[in-house]
Design a protein around this nucleic acid. Structure first.
Length: 749
DNA sequence: TCAATCCGTATC
DNA sequence: ATACGGATTGAC
């Protein structure tokens, strides 16, 4: 040890820049540092000497700068120690960036667990978990906290009762008042939780600080934000914090409003839209325990919450809960890990339910928290298929017409009842897909093979991928020059309905222009899934349901049901919902019966029969053929009986390869993409651009292959470990070529 | 025999 | 990435 410090260092010390006066800290002179290097073979802590002058600031959790392989690099101190295991010479800590201990032990543990679970590196997860520092905000907050110690603390505490009022509505942006001392909040009245048989006991358990875990199937309507807020208050009454994750900014607004009236200024909302300063300010107020309830979109799943007692995930099936950056963790998994570790309660659900959540129930990890049939009948609107047997007897065209007679009658009745009528259309745009008017071959771009579309009435068809116009299109099969519509988008639907109901206000919502809400008056509201404005709708039409069901995805059924339920839940209990899809389809039946729970159990049974997730654990390895092959070759041999199954590699479809193209600069995308209404933009989501080792743009995408690795659930961690080892071997050998390793890939087909 | 250069490997 | 050590090469 002595040899490695000033003694042996002196001769070479002259050559190094280390001033000879540098002395190690008298206590625990070793700092164990997680260095911000995303290479798999460097995914472990490195030891540094703490110079005396940094001894006080270099505490576990602080950001530091260290010299690593000759370069100054960012890192976090994980721990201080008396001695190092490292045989060689140690470098000195260069700088403590800020004494703020931003990486709490809980989050450090969580980040490690997430990295292990997803075959990723700690550095990658820490970049998702700890927001970039904003120095000015940190300083201002520190000054304010110091002042609060003297003057405002009592005042703020007094303002912070259950009935406390936030400084500004919808965001809890108030000057971060403290939560009252533990126990100062009374356990809440169960309120609308009484409508669930297990609701009161769940709330009581949370109020007692017991780690109950519920798979929640929420009743339709707009009470769910309140119910989440009540659960937060129950947790608060146990002196514990709550973390709430919702898919998008609109849902966050609703939860924020409910929290404003329920827990008052003891909460903050976190979204990417806030901007770095405000975001960091709120994040710090959670870190410092000034607020006990944190609500946010996906990135908030890593937020430090003091004395975490409850995690909540709303609309657990939304694909916005899947982080698109490596190692691609899903909020459901992360929150489940967190609840487990923190011995916190969990409330995971939505109107619909995924097979993954059904699996958590089946394994005994969570208990189902669902309403009784009678309550559902009293709360949910009546749902009918546009072409059910009664309607077929009446309207022969019910199956073929896009707006069959029942749909039009329902719209008319809804408008007459005085409320807005919601029309859900899966795709935005005008004519999203067109075909030859004679032979019905799909019309494609002659330049790139992309789908031809029509952007607005009377416009020339253009390519949906490359934008080339196709004014003189002729069918390559039969030389016919006219096209017909295959898939009609929201814009054209609005036009058609406007003609069918002259004089009625028609509004559209979706894509980049999402309406937050519409008033309670007659209007037609055309929306893409996920972009439905809040309202008390008198009726809803769910058009082109077949298109959702026909998506080439393992999850198409469950995703269709989720989108329908999310729209239908906005309809008044005495309203009507018409679903335009095959009435015999199980997902349509589940909507008509309003029974997502049974449907999720059935989906899980199907997946078990097929050996698909979540019955098994899968990993996808995607990239250039050579890179995929070399990664597979680098896999350590599985122990006998591990049950590893390698499918492929096979070439990824050209659609998938194409879909990755029009997305430049993905590395720059900071924070969670809360792009409003993004679930609406068509069936080909879930395909991602490949990491091309730091190259940007211009390079034509070569062939892309994918292999799937499948193991029994119990072997999931072993699979992740093996994939991590294979990546470590590759990165140590500096083998280039982008390979993406993704556990539980969202899209398997 | 020694310096210049190459290559592989560790990065504290 | 860069920096270092050991091996290799080539000139004296």
């Amino acid at each position: 040890m002595a040899e490695t410090q000033n003694g042996g260092g002196r001769a070479r010390g002259a050559r190094r820049k280390d001033p000879p006066t540098l002395r190690p800290a008298p206590e625990a002179p070793i700092a164990r540092v997680a260095v911000d290097i995303p290479l798999a073979h460097l995914d472990r802590p490195f030891d540094y000497l703490v110079p005396e002058r940094l001894a006080a600031d270099a505490m576990p959790g602080v950001r530091v700068r260290v010299r690593f392989a000759g370069q100054l690099t960012d890192g976090f101190i994980l721990a201080r120690a008396e001695a190092s295991e490292h045989g060689g010479r140690l470098s000195w800590l260069d700088r403590v960036v800020s004494p703020e201990r931003v990486l709490t032990p809980e989050i450090a543990w969580l980040a490690r667990a997430v990295a292990d679970r997803y075959a990723g590196t700690l550095a990658d997860v820490l970049r998702l978990a700890v927001p970039p520092r904003h120095a000015a905000t940190e300083a201002a907050q520190a000054a304010q906290a110091a002042q609060a110690m003297h003057s405002t603390r009592l005042v703020q505490a007094a303002e912070t009762g259950p009935a406390g009022h936030a400084a500004s509505p919808g965001d809890g942006s108030g000057q971060s008042a403290a939560a009252g001392p533990p126990g100062s909040v009374a356990a809440p009245d169960p309120g609308s939780w009484r409508r669930y048989p297990a609701g009161e006991s769940f709330l009581a358990a949370v109020a007692q600080g017991r780690p109950v875990r519920a798979a929640w199937t929420a009743l339709p309507g707009d009470t769910w934000p309140e119910e989440i807020a009540l659960a937060s208050l129950a947790s608060l009454s146990a002196g514990r914090g709550t973390l709430i994750v919702v898919p998008d900014a609109r849902d966050l607004g609703r939860v924020g409003a409910a929290l404003d009236t329920t827990v008052g200024s003891a909460h903050v909302s976190l979204t990417a839209e806030l901007g770095p300063a405000e975001r960091y300010r709120r994040w710090l107020s959670a870190l410092r325990g000034e607020v006990m309830v944190v609500a946010g979109t996906r990135a908030a799943m890593f937020a430090p919450v003091a004395n975490l007692g409850l995690v909540v995930l709303w609309d657990e099936g939304d694909d916005l809960h899947a982080e698109p950056r490596a190692p691609y963790p899903n909020a459901r998994e992360v929150l489940a890990l967190r609840a487990h570790q923190a011995k916190a309660a969990a409330l995971i659900g939505g109107f619909a339910r995924t097979a993954e959540l059904a699996q958590l129930v089946e394994s005994g990890w969570a208990r189902s928290l669902e309403p009784q049939r009678a309550t559902i009948r009293a709360t949910a609107p009546v749902v009918r298929a546009a072409a059910d047997e009664f309607e077929l007897a009446r309207d022969a065209a019910a199956t073929t017409a896009r707006l069959p007679s029942l749909a039009l009658r329902t719209v008319r009745a809804g408008l007459a009842a005085g409320g807005p009528v919601l029309v859900q259309v899966p795709r935005r745009g005008y004519l999203v897909a067109i075909a030859c008017g004679r032979c019905r071959a799909r019309a494609r771009c002659t330049r790139c093979g992309g789908p031809l579309q029509v952007a607005a009435a009377e416009e020339t068809p253009g390519c949906g991928w490359c934008g080339a116009l196709a004014g003189d299109w002729k069918c390559p099969q039969c030389d016919f020059g006219k096209v017909r519509a295959i898939t009609i988008g929201a814009a054209r639907t609005a036009e058609e309905l406007g003609r069918a109901f002259p004089g009625v206000n028609v509004r559209t919502s979706g894509g980049a222009a999402v309406l937050a809400a519409v008033p309670d008056e007659p209007a037609l509201v055309i929306a893409t899934p996920g972009g439905e404005p809040l309202a008390r709708y008198a009726a809803a039409l769910l058009l082109d349901g077949w298109a959702l069901l026909a998506r080439p995805s393992l999850r198409s059924d469950e995703e269709a049901l989720r989108r329908w339920m999310n729209a239908a839940a906005l309809v008044r209990a005495d309203g009507a919902v018409i679903i335009h899809a095959d009435a015999a389809h199980p997902a349509v039946q589940a909507l008509i019966r309003w029974d997502a729970t049974t449907f999720s159990e059935r989906t899980l049974a199907d997946r078990i029969a097929l050996s698909f997730p979540p019955a098994v654990r899968m990993a996808a390895v995607t990239g250039e053929p050579d890179a995929v092959a070399s990664l597979l070759a680098a896999l350590p041999p599985p122990p006998p009986g591990a049950g590893l199954d390698i499918l492929g590699p096979v070439s990824v479809s050209e659609d998938a390869a194409q879909a990755g193209r029009p997305q430049p600069g993905r590395r720059e995308a900071r924070g969670p993409a809360v792009s409003a209404g993004s679930p609406g933009e068509g069936g080909d989501r879930g395909v991602f651009p490949l990491v091309a080792g730091g190259q940007q743009g211009g390079r034509p995408p070569g062939e892309v292959q994918r292999a799937l690795l499948r193991v029994p659930r119990a072997e999931g961690l072993a699979l992740a470990r093996a994939l991590h080892a294979a990546q470590a071997a590759r990165s140590a050998r500096k083998e280039g070529g982008g390979v993406r390793v993704q556990l539980d890939p969202a899209e398997l087909i």
